[in-house]
Computed example of a mutant assay.
Amino acid sequence: MGSVRFEQVTKRFGSVEVIRNMELSIEDGELVVFVGPSGCGKSTMLRLLAGLESVSEGRVYIGGRDVHMLEPKERDIAMVFQNYALYPHMTVRQNIAFGLKLSGLSKPDIERAVAEASSLLGLKELLDRKPRELSGGQRQRVAMGRAIVRKPQVFLMDEPLSNLDAKLRNHMRVEIRKLQQRLSTTMIYVTHDQVEAMTMADRIAIIDGGEVQQFGTPQEVYHRPANIFVADFIGSPAMNFVPASRTDERTLTMPGGLSVEIPAERAAQIDDADEVLLGIRPEHFQIANGASDDLITWSAPLEMCEPLGGEHLIHAGMGDSKVVVRAPGVWSGCESGMVPLAFDPELAHIFDPAGPCLSHGRAA
């Protein structure tokens, strides 16, 4: 069983605490992505799990077994690093087989394992080449093959695609996801790229400052963010945050004098907060086609327009605030000075300026 559990794990380097009282449980066969900005602690968590760093406090479990005192080779894990670390003087075949040879496996068993892995990864025609004769994507697959042949309980991947160009990254993340589903093995994948996280993961652990800010499915973290950090980090372009003042129990006033009437149940959720932030996804704005009782509409000064082929990103004003609007299809108003915008306030999340989400908007 490849379940993984961090139990009140803390990691310090000297006086600096990089992981704080971490509690996290990963089920057997899941693909979980650790995502967050540089320096948040996500790679340190992977290294603690691999045994490359020791925990300062707490316990780490793999398959129900406490491994925090075990050497890396005793943990039944396989790791693929950002630097593939292939042996340049060895062929693909020799690189894949190297770990099995050290473990004392018989030659027929090694050949069988290499044949299975190379077939799975599309490397059969490349087995006699050396790393310098391979593309970046091919080298990445060799590194994965070296991990696969060991048949570990858990695969650990630390930003394995960051050295590839954008098109190849898109291709390889699909291949990694398909491979994980085929093998049904637990995989923990570290990245700073929220697109990789959203497209690959069964569940995402969003990490900042050594703490998990939210742990859930891609849909959960996108549609029901726990706090401002999660809402801002997940989504491209990022969520818009618009300040609003509470003028009476159910009325919020936004920049430019726009007013939002909120239902009684949402007013109860935000309690007595006088100042809040409305979080609005770029795709929840629309080009207005006249006034509507259900929508907040205004004429916004147009600051910039980014045509992306199938959509436009419109940068516009809302009083003293700025918003980014995703407009699908062809839009001909990029040369105009003003743009009529609208949004449904029921789609907006309401945040405490200190961070927590007080009230989630409904899914569009």
Rank of each mutant, 00 (worst) to 15 (best):
G333W: 11
G319C: 01
H349N: 14
D344V: 06
R281T: 02
A316D: 02
R281I: 06
S292K: 05
G317T: 10
F351V: 07
E275M: 10
E335Y: 06
I296K: 02
E335I: 06
L302H: 06
G290L: 12
F285C: 07
K322N: 14
L308M: 15
V325D: 03
G319N: 00
G290V: 11
A327E: 13
S292N: 12
P307Y: 09
I314K: 03
E275S: 12
A354Q: 11
H284G: 07
V276W: 09
A354F: 01
A348R: 02
A300H: 02
G355P: 13
C334Q: 04
K322L: 14
A342I: 04
H349F: 06
E346M: 13
W331H: 07
S332W: 00
M338K: 10
G317R: 15
D320W: 00
V324K: 14
E311K: 15
I287E: 00
D320V: 11
G309I: 01
S299E: 14
H315W: 12
G333L: 12
I280Q: 09
H315L: 13
V330C: 04
P307K: 10
H312K: 12
G329E: 12
G279A: 09
W331E: 03
A354I: 00
F285R: 10
A354R: 12
M318D: 07
L302W: 06
A288C: 09
L278F: 11
A342K: 01
H349K: 06
A327Q: 15
P340M: 02
D293G: 05
V325N: 09
L308Q: 15
C305A: 14
F285V: 08
H349Q: 04
E275H: 13
V325E: 08
P353R: 08
E275I: 06
P307F: 04
S321W: 00
P282T: 06
E303V: 13
S292E: 12
N289Q: 15
S332G: 02
D320C: 02
P328Y: 04
K322I: 13
P301F: 03
L295N: 10
W298C: 04
P282A: 06
F351Q: 04
G355F: 12
A288L: 07
L277Y: 10
V339N: 02
T297L: 05
A316H: 05
P340T: 01
A348G: 06
S299N: 15
I296T: 08
E311Q: 15
E335K: 13
D294H: 01
M318Q: 12
A327C: 15
L302K: 08
P328S: 03
V330N: 07
V324P: 08
L341P: 02
S321Q: 05
S299A: 11
